[in-house]
Design a protein around this nucleic acid. Structure first.
Lengths: 138, 138
DNA sequence: TTAAATGCAAATCTTTTGCACTGGC
DNA sequence: GCCAGTGCAAAAGATTTGCATTTAA
């Protein structure tokens, strides 16, 4: 019988209709394998793969991360004009962004609540509400 | 006697200790001259200057916008992985971002209110809370 | 006079793309 | 075998930087 807690990259990919290729499985395991939520950039993941002596090209890391986020397997988070972060945690939650180090972390407490959210203008709908709490060390 | 409603670029710059150079005055007037709030990228402003037949280099537009936002004359808004927007409205308010067109507008109502904002971690302080409401036309 | 600001072009950095090759199904 | 996925290198796009020139104080 299968252990439901063990992450299975192939199933994870099949669920959203992505073909489980070697590179996708490899990256999926790097991302989700340890069951902990992570925030990383394409470059971060590429480095991690290199350290683990896994063969993927940077372009594939970018393509893969975008496929994953378009399929809803990851969340894309934009905080910084230049880089793009991905988050393995999927529920809507706010982030701390450490301006000095460029690190992104989850803000504690999912009970953050917005009052009086403006209505979307006619003929439009809200796809997401991003909340970034910018921090400075002191 | 001076008209307090008329925008004066030189004073605006002096207030924050920026030297009123020709280009800064010129850009300040483009930005603030009509008294309306605006959202724009460096490229937008550069184009606007070109249309007005004003001579500034793109590098200077970038430098100037960053000086202005570091001095608190403008707000920098990051919504999109690639571009960086500036806002002439200085109070903390949330934005609508139109994903298709890349336009940024003020969300109506400044009474948007956040409950249970997480406390900043030890030895850090919150510099800003950015709220971006992403919209899709339908 | 002189330190700060500017202009230009070249450099940088992240991300995307074109195209030939590879590998799931 | 077919077509989606991949790798590589080259391109793209936004921003920055180095350095010689100009300009405000």
């Amino acid at each position: 019988m299968m252990n439901p807690n063990k992450f299975c990259a192939t199933n994870w990919l099949y669920k959203v209709g992505l073909r489980p290729t070697k590179q996708r499985i490899l990256l999926a395991n790097l991302l989700m394998g340890d069951g902990k939520h992570q925030h990383f950039t394409a470059e971060d993941l590429f480095e991690k793969a290199k350290i683990c002596k896994l063969k993927v090209s940077l372009a594939t890391v970018y393509n893969t991360l975008h496929s994953f986020s378009e399929s809803g397997l990851l969340n894309k988070v934009i905080v910084d004009g230049s880089r793009c972060y991905f988050d393995t945690r999927l529920d809507n939650h706010s982030h701390f962004f450490w301006e000095e180090t460029g690190k992104l972390t989850d803000a504690p407490g999912n009970f953050l609540e917005i009052k009086n959210l403006p209505k979307p203008p006619k003929n439009s709908k809200i796809t997401n509400v991003d909340i970034i709490i910018r921090l400075k060390e002191n």
